[in-house]
Simulated scan of single mutants.
Amino acid sequence: MSDSPWTDRIVGARMTVDQEFTSRIVESQFSSQQWSLIMTATEFEIEHPDDPDRARIVANTEKVEQIIPELENVGTGMGMGGQPQGQQGGSSSGGVLGSIKGALGLGGGDSGDSHAEQERAAEQLTQEYADELQSHLESNGRWDSVRQAAATEE
């Protein structure tokens, strides 16, 4: 559904929401590069587009599970001061110390648990993004036309 006409209508809105959502990404466990990968694997759909009271944008994250292992390889280049790029100091995402602890078997949990946690966090964050996108469309008076365009595609 990602190449549908209703999604073409919201390209500008998505760019605006992307900029506004940047601070939320900074606060998350994901780097901007990781977020980009997550968004590439996420498709947005409109549930119940023919019902104005129930219609809402939802994040379809079926494909996110496939990219979770790759998140560890994205944005892990070292930046200034030995801090992994895209990572905040004191972050719970691991970094060099987490890698050392993991190599020593002190990581506290296996990668399956970590992957499940990352997947849940990605699903939650993408739905927050979808909610922000819908709110943006509503506040600009564009939601009804987008919703109606999605309804005609079904």
Rank of each mutant, 00 (worst) to 15 (best):
S145T: 15
V11I: 14
E65Q: 13
P5I: 14
A150N: 05
G81H: 05
E45A: 13
T40K: 10
R9S: 13
N140D: 14
G12A: 15
Q127M: 11
L125E: 06
E70M: 06
Q134P: 12
N73K: 04
I68N: 01
E72M: 02
Q19L: 13
V26L: 08
Q118T: 02
T61G: 03
P52S: 15
G105P: 09
S32T: 11
N60D: 15
M78W: 00
D131T: 15
A59K: 08
I46W: 03
L106N: 03
A41L: 05
M78A: 00
I67W: 05
A103R: 09
A59V: 08
D113R: 10
A121Q: 10
G77P: 00
E62Y: 08
A103E: 11
S145Q: 14
Q127W: 04
D18V: 10
S2R: 09
D18A: 11
M78C: 00
G82P: 02
E128Q: 14
L97R: 03
L133C: 07
M39F: 02
W35Q: 02
W6V: 08
D131M: 07
G107C: 04
G79W: 02
L125N: 01
S114A: 11
Q34N: 03
R147E: 14
S2E: 11
V146T: 11
N140Y: 09
S4F: 08
Q124M: 13
L133G: 01
G90D: 01
M78Q: 00
M15Q: 15
Q19A: 15
G86R: 01
V146D: 01
T61A: 09
H115E: 15
K101P: 00
M15C: 06
D113S: 10
K63N: 13
G109V: 08
V11C: 04
S23D: 12
H136F: 15
E65S: 14
I68E: 04
L37R: 07
R14K: 14
Q19I: 07
Q34K: 07
D131W: 02
E119C: 09
S31V: 09
A41F: 04
T126V: 06
Q127I: 11
M1E: 12
A130G: 04
G12I: 13
E65C: 04
H48M: 14
S135P: 00
E47V: 13
F21G: 07
Q34M: 09
I38S: 02
M39S: 06
Q66R: 12
W6H: 13
